[in-house]
């Protein structure tokens, strides 16, 4: 393996010792990856080589925050906790990739695990495959870090054909408490299916906050757009009225106007 950037020679301080050893082995040319053969070949097709399977994790105590029974509001402490925990896991994964001299990480998965032993604690994990361009050109993002993306090998290939390059997996989160309805409110509208504007407004705002935060991350990367935006809703272990709204997507930057995708041909597949 050649062309290791200067800044990657020093082992990152907060990676565990075992990870350091594993990564050193990877530097001798062996690669590990959870890519399928198809994905591996497609990544080679666009001039990238997999370097190794990288991961980062963070076990975070999420604490509690008092919620007002009757009002809808963002729970900023929880939002911050959810955000920081994921950010830590991502950063550690990026450090591992950096150690390998990678240009980016594809197929990133973000998971949250809960364990019996830790009440209110959750493990946030990020994993993916570090890749490097074979032509020596740097594909690192505006911040000088390897790009991250949750794209599969197939998606990565397709995106490159459209003249776009991934910049980073961007996310925004917002933990929101949805008000309980008071007795008076419940009675006054009984008997009809009508809109509840306060609820609409609360859910609308929570999702918009998550999306705006994601967009802010993309702007910091100087991205021209975000593809594959997903909105996820999770109640974690907080009960049904407290919901985390998470939006995720891959920020991309346009490098060429040319779309080089060949025109597909029509086929009838005989496979089941």
């Amino acid at each position: 393996m050649t062309g290791k950037p200067e800044d990657a020679t020093a082992a990152p301080k907060d990676l565990p010792k075992d990870a350091g050893r594993r990564l050193q082995e990877l530097e001798h040319g062996l690669f590990t990856s959870d890519l399928s053969v198809n994905e591996f070949l497609l990544i080679k097709e666009v001039g990238f080589h997999p370097l190794g399977f990288v991961m980062g994790s963070s076990i975070y105590h999420t604490g509690i925050q008092t919620r007002k029974w009757g009002s809808s509001q963002e729970l900023t402490k929880l939002t911050e906790a959810m955000y920081n925990a994921r950010e830590l896991a991502m950063t550690r994964m990026e450090e591992e990739a950096n150690e390998l001299g990678a240009d980016g990480i594809v197929g990133v998965r973000l998971d949250v695990n809960y364990y019996e032993w830790g009440k209110d604690a959750a493990e946030f994990i990020a994993m993916g495959t570090a890749v490097k361009a074979e032509n020596g050109q740097s594909y690192r993002n505006k911040k000088g870090a390897p790009f991250t993306s949750d794209l599969s090998g197939q998606d990565f290939w397709t995106l490159m054909q459209t003249g776009h390059v991934p910049q980073g997996l961007v996310m925004g989160t917002c933990v929101y408490h949805i008000a309980h309805r008071g007795l008076g409110q419940t009675l006054s509208s009984t008997g009809q299916n009508v809109e509840l504007p306060n609820f609409t407004q609360a859910l609308y705002e929570a999702r918009e906050l998550a999306m705006t935060r994601m967009q802010d991350e993309a702007d910091e990367l100087g991205a021209s757009g975000i593809v594959g935006v997903r909105l996820e809703e999770k109640t974690h272990q907080w009960g049904s009225h407290t919901i985390e709204f998470l939006s995720l997507g891959t920020a991309v930057v346009k490098t060429s106007d040319e779309v080089t995708l060949p025109r597909p041909t029509t086929i009838i597949s005989l496979d089941n």
Binding site: S36, N38, S152, D155, L270
Partner: peptide, 13 residues
């Protein structure tokens, strides 16, 4: 008379 092809997309994808 089918044409035989090798696809590069994974079933899951």
């Amino acid at each position: 008379e089918p044409v035989v092809l090798v696809a590069l997309d994974d079933a899951s994808a």
